[in-house]
């Protein structure tokens, strides 16, 4: 009996020592951020070790933002979520209560440490002469964009197009709906996430234009041979995409990782992390870094989600069941 107690004690001690020294976090993220977080995680681990002497490993999971949100609701043990749009995190809060409904106010800048926007990626030489959104609805143009029902990027893409159509048509909704219908008629492939769409365009050589996150477009250009094959076209009007981050309080508390997880999210706002973001073509929030990298981020007139009445309204109107997206995909095919 004494032996048993002692061995239990030893195990408890060593495991508690280990958990103090070796922490694991799960960051459930949206699709394009694979390279970004690989770099950030390495840098954070280094900084954490220097600060506390402990090791932290951050595991990543990547997929379409909406899909990831659903996974978290269904039990994927995320300590932090870094998704493509605020609505997806709202849904997690609503449907599972794993984080408070005011999560977005808990971190600076609407909990979005970096922003991005939507651009077009076309083949080198722009053979189809695609300059702006209205070129996308020309017959014979093949568009690649992900599925708005699963991908965060796809919803930003859609809203960018919708916003443009509304402006062009003096806010006439039925004209805008028509525009979207024609646009999606030209869509050849609907992937689950932004990265899937990029793969389709780049690797499989399908499509004339990829509607993409700005950072995805740059990533593609910087791939070996990319500069000779693709070029970026910035539309006349785009949308400010704010991919937010949040601490999944209940899960991290259960894991005992709340402190590290919070530090991790705070780290995203530090100059070091902001530089990493900028290098990966995410628009940084920190003015100093933004100025330093200003050249690689063209000034584009941008709408914000507020112009669409906020995410709750936009999701309901466009992307939920029987919303506008469902209707433009209906019969008549």
């Amino acid at each position: 009996m004494k032996k048993l107690l002692i061995s239990c004690l030893v195990i408890a001690l060593t495991s508690s020592l280990m958990s103090a020294a070796d922490i694991k976090l799960l960051n459930v993220s949206y699709d394009p951020t694979r390279e970004l977080y690989k770099e950030i995680n390495t840098a954070f681990a280094k900084s954490w070790k220097a600060k506390t002497g402990n090791n932290v490993t951050i595991n990543q999971s990547h997929d379409g933002s909406g899909k990831q949100a659903r996974s978290v609701i269904f039990g994927l043990q995320a300590d932090v979520v870094t998704l493509g749009l605020a609505y997806d995190i709202d849904v997690i809060a609503q449907k599972s209560g794993l984080l408070p409904s005011n999560w977005q106010t808990l971190l600076p800048n609407n909990s979005a440490p970096y922003t991005s926007t939507i651009v077009f990626l076309v083949r080198k030489g722009n053979p189809k002469k695609i300059k702006d959104w209205n070129d996308l609805i020309r017959p014979g143009v093949s568009i690649i964009t992900p599925n708005p029902k699963t991908s965060g990027g796809a919803r930003w893409n859609y809203l960018g197009a919708w916003g443009y159509a509304m402006r062009q048509n003096a806010n006439n909704e039925s004209a805008a709906t028509n525009f979207m219908k024609q646009l999606f008629k030209n869509v050849t492939v609907l992937d689950t996430g932004a990265r899937g769409a990029t793969t389709t365009f780049i690797q499989r050589g399908i499509g004339d234009v990829l509607i993409a996150w700005e950072n995805e477009a740059w990533l593609s250009i910087n791939e070996p041979g990319g500069k000779d094959k693709f070029e970026i076209v910035v539309p006349s009007l785009s949308i400010l995409a704010e991919p937010p981050v949040a601490l999944v309080e209940k899960v991290s508390q259960k894991h005992g990782t709340a402190a590290v997880a919070k530090a991790y999210l705070d780290y995203l706002y530090t100059p070091e992390a902001q530089e990493i973001a900028a290098k990966n073509y995410y628009r940084p929030r920190l003015k100093a870094v933004a100025d330093k990298y200003a050249k690689q981020f063209p000034a584009v007139p941008m709408m914000t989600i507020a112009d669409f009445g906020g995410w709750q309204q936009a999701q309901k109107k466009h992307f939920d069941d029987q919303g506008i997206f469902d209707r433009i995909y209906q019969p008549g095919k």
């Binding site: 909406g66 899909k67 659903r70 029902k149 699963t150 050849t188 492939v189 609907l190 689950t192 399908i206």
Partner: peptide, 21 residues
């Protein structure tokens, strides 16, 4: 290509529905 009505087989449609809640 998983385009609805054109190249979406039933298995893929199930997955899409799963992913859409």
């Amino acid at each position: 290509a998983n385009i609805p009505f054109k190249t979406q087989i039933t298995s893929l449609l199930i997955i899409t529905k799963l992913e859409e809640y």
